[in-house]
Design a binder for these strands. Structure first.
Length: 274
DNA sequence: CTCCTGTCCTGCCGGC
DNA sequence: TGCCGGCAGGACAGGA
């Protein structure tokens, strides 16, 4: 379930832990996640030194000194753990990939539901990689402006909530933070996307606020950074509506309700969100 | 182009 | 007690 803040937290943790490390061996314990691993996955990465770790949307980008880039998505349940030398010698059921480092440490990728994906490409091909080329602007980046969002929503008559979860509109806003941002902005999740008009600047600032607060919370409350996954890494203590059906709205005291939109649960307050 | 549905996967939880 | 259905959900494929 990692959304952008959780992926950003993982990225920062990995950055401080394994940049500079050299991969001595790669072991795939199965040949696919959501998609097959590329041919020669192990050979392409063996012997490579990690030079940089970046993030685009919910993708982690591991850069290596040979100009090869590993693109990784955590899907729903993906989790990276850095294992210190001598610890946790036995692997667990859903440990699908093991990167051994020359210093004796290991990076283990565990993914129960296998919605994650990994691929490798050349540094020069990252921007045009199939997984990345059609992604919308980053929600915390400079391109995510009022003008941009007005234009992006102008022809969209579908409800705003599933629309802001689309990676072609803005990346990184998943089911949880979509509900939270709309609550903060006082916008009904049912409102057609092209009718939120004057509330666009407010929605943008609420998306900024909820993501920034979650990143901040991730950085300060998650001690085992790399184990961020699913519920453990979430900004859950601060949810106003997500998962709170039947509980009382923190603003007005009315019960929070749960509906389904595009096959996903949406939580909101009918009184505060119009 | 927009929009909608189905699909992938495992674990958990409620109902009977 | 065990089985079964439904749900969780990111993001793509494919069809209308």
């Amino acid at each position: 379930m990692p959304e952008l803040p959780e992926v950003e937290t993982v990225k920062r943790g990995l950055e401080s832990a394994i940049v500079g490390a050299v991969i001595s061996k790669v072991t795939l314990r199965r040949r696919n996640l959501r998609a097959p691993f590329p041919e020669n996955f192990e050979k392409l990465l063996a012997g490579q030194k990690i030079t940089k770790i970046a993030r685009r949307a919910k993708y982690l980008l591991f850069h290596f000194d040979s100009d090869v880039v590993l693109i990784a998505h955590l899907g729903m349940t993906g989790r990276f753990s850095v294992v210190v030398k001598g610890k946790k010698e036995e692997l667990e059921t859903h440990d699908h990939v093991v990167f051994d480092f020359s210093d004796g440490r290991k990076l283990v990728y565990n993914d129960t539901r296998r919605f994650g994906v990994m691929d490798i490409c050349d540094k020069s091909e990252v921007a045009t990689h199939k997984l990345l080329e059609n992604l919308a602007p980053e929600p915390l980046g400079e391109e995510f402006t009022v003008n941009y969002l007005e234009k992006a929503l102008s022809k969209r008559e579908t409800p705003i909530k599933p629309t802001i979860m689309e990676q072609k509109i803005v990346v990184g806003v998943g089911n949880i933070y979509a509900s939270e941002a709309l609550f903060m902005a006082g916008i009904s999740p049912l409102k057609p996307a092209n009718t939120i008009g004057k509330k666009i600047p407010l929605l943008i600032s609420c998306i900024h606020d909820v993501l920034n607060a979650a990143i901040k919370a991730g950085g300060s409350t998650i001690s085992d950074f790399a184990d961020v996954s699913g519920d453990s890494g979430y900004f859950q203590h601060s949810f106003h509506v997500y998962g709170r059906a039947g509980k009382l709205c923190s603003k007005c005291g009315n019960p929070i309700i749960s509906i389904r939109q595009a096959g996903r649960a949406t939580f909101y307050c009918e009184k505060c969100q119009k």
